[in-house]
Design a protein around this nucleic acid. Sequence first.
DNA 1: TACGAGCCTGACAACGTTGTCCAGGCTCTA
DNA 2: TAGAGCCTGGACAACGTTGTCAGGCTCGTA
Lengths: 374, 374
Amino acid sequence: MLDATSSYNPMDLRIPVADRTGHRTVPETTRRTESLPGTRYGNRPTMKDVAARAGVGLKTVSRVVNGEPGVTPETERRVQEAIEALGFRRNDSARVLRKGRTASIGLVLEDLADPFYGPLSRAVEEVARAHGALLINGSSAEDADREQELVLALCARRVDGLVVIPAGDDHRYLEPEIKAGVATVFVDRPAGHIDADIVVSDNYGGARDGVKHLIAHGHRRIGFIGDMPRIHTAAERLRGYRTAMEDAGIPVADSWMSLGVTDPERVRRAAREMLSGPEPVTAIFTGNNRVTVTVIRVLAEHTRPVALVGFDDIELADLLNPGVTVVAQDAAALGRTAAERLFRRLDGTLLTPERIELPTRLITRGSGELPPAD
Amino acid sequence: MLDATSSYNPMDLRIPVADRTGHRTVPETTRRTESLPGTRYGNRPTMKDVAARAGVGLKTVSRVVNGEPGVTPETERRVQEAIEALGFRRNDSARVLRKGRTASIGLVLEDLADPFYGPLSRAVEEVARAHGALLINGSSAEDADREQELVLALCARRVDGLVVIPAGDDHRYLEPEIKAGVATVFVDRPAGHIDADIVVSDNYGGARDGVKHLIAHGHRRIGFIGDMPRIHTAAERLRGYRTAMEDAGIPVADSWMSLGVTDPERVRRAAREMLSGPEPVTAIFTGNNRVTVTVIRVLAEHTRPVALVGFDDIELADLLNPGVTVVAQDAAALGRTAAERLFRRLDGTLLTPERIELPTRLITRGSGELPPAD
DNA sequence: TACGAGCCTGACAACGTTGTCCAGGCTCTA
DNA sequence: TAGAGCCTGGACAACGTTGTCAGGCTCGTA
């Protein structure tokens, strides 16, 4: 009430933040140095207060709050009244400390704002909810250090389990945590140097089928634009591309492949280069949704029709002209499968780590069926 | 090690789950009745263990872990060694209990999978991260009860603050929490029956401008398809529509307005009805991204060109033919503004609740500039 | 040599909850 | 009427951490 000066000062509670991003993490305004030990949750009432007010013992309040048997209706009424009057709400931090389970799981993904991860995290959330757990999530921004910070911060909070979409490629730092009982499932990309559950799409097969599809429609000069090759999915999709080309006996020119960050500028440049020159590609296979969107823009300005198949479905793809043919993966199924596996592991049912691969689906809409414009 | 039978049993830790959804919440497999008190975090080492192994006192370990001064380099080395050897990681649950702050904030929104909320939650997360806090989030699925469950579960975890996108329209249940010190900011829609910070877009003005735009291009029979009127944003946008029509002296026929759930089937039917009949609309204003997408699909099958302006921007809107004219709101800015305000409140800087309205932006791309096809 | 200052270190209580265990009062039956 | 058994309620310790405080050590100085 009176301490309106209470300042938010979780300086030392805060999760560690790598500075390498160059991005200031602690705004000046929160950099207070004095510690304010008195900053309690606004002095919320505790069970003790409720007990005192109701004139009962501490444990009785606990029983009422948790719906345990063995309390007279009359006593229960008194306790409920006191709870009401004081605005008591059980402190789950204390509860968790005592019980040893937090009923929460962590989800670390690349970017919550990416339309691919929305359905995925929603699916994880639904499964968590069905198991009575809350979801804590964070974005790694494709930065291995940030992934590790987040994961370890979550472990420190003692989440019961973790669903991780790896940004880094070495997860040995998780070994002690897993050994200590944190159920962990990796999704979308495999974990590095560690034996754990993995749920991925069939990136290799999907890409191969997509490229085969282009070949079947008469294309031979097919470009590939993908994400950085250190990202496993990108590498796998490239491998699918190469296999399809090889199987068809088509030698691949270096200039047909472009891997790197998926920022629009680079992708645009890469696409333009493939489309110009003495032997331009007649079709492009794009390695993920972001790349596809940029390439669609490039093709829209291009005079000659160019065939396109993209990895990942994109909204409104069917309404473009031509519709965009894609290799779709089921983001929600990835999340659901991973989360379900995680809870089975928490049940103790599940013991040996496994790799689960979900199939992809080729959706033809027109852009992949354009003939080569030679 | 030996207790491979440990089963996930947060039965009573779980957040309350309303049953009205008809959707089974507790899978058979987790319905164990015996309690397993021994289920500790896989018996993780504690500071006590570290202290014992390093041959120092408990508090010294605490000092080392927290980087507090007053420890000999030699002692520190011994402690670090013990930490390493045991795989110790501080238990933040205990820490939180002791310190009174959790360094985490809750975000309750409608649906994580909705492309509108992705950027919003990412923005909230970034701000939280800059303040050293983690983000716990949940989807209310537009269900007032579920919103309340989630919010109260978060309060029980003693999140330091809450960002809430209201599903319900009565938030008095939050009063004791706010009084107890949980900083709360509502986003996207106002809170009901409670005095709190609110960050919204200018739904009314945006819709009015969008409809004005259609009127300026010669339309008079303009349809409006929106979300359920009990959702504040939907009501405001409808108000904007009505004002624009009124200002232009155009009487609105009841059959031009359709409000209700945004599931594709209903929206499709509504659009088709407006487009048929003796006096079909020549333009449609859509009340949110989901509606817009569905209506685009309907219009694509329609022979006569129909003008369209939609509330909310959608990806690839510029690549359709014609490009889709929209009233865009800045989801990231909504999230950022709300989160920043929340942390200012936690700093104690901020005292009186305020309503902040962010402007919208009309983006013309073609569909809104079509002339009436009479 | 003695003594205070200053530095390290650790014992202890507290945070709010739950599990264990026991006491007292009641009912029921022989 | 006594004893057995059940029901209700409460005292207490423990969960793992941090703040407080006091004790012991070293060092420099009188």
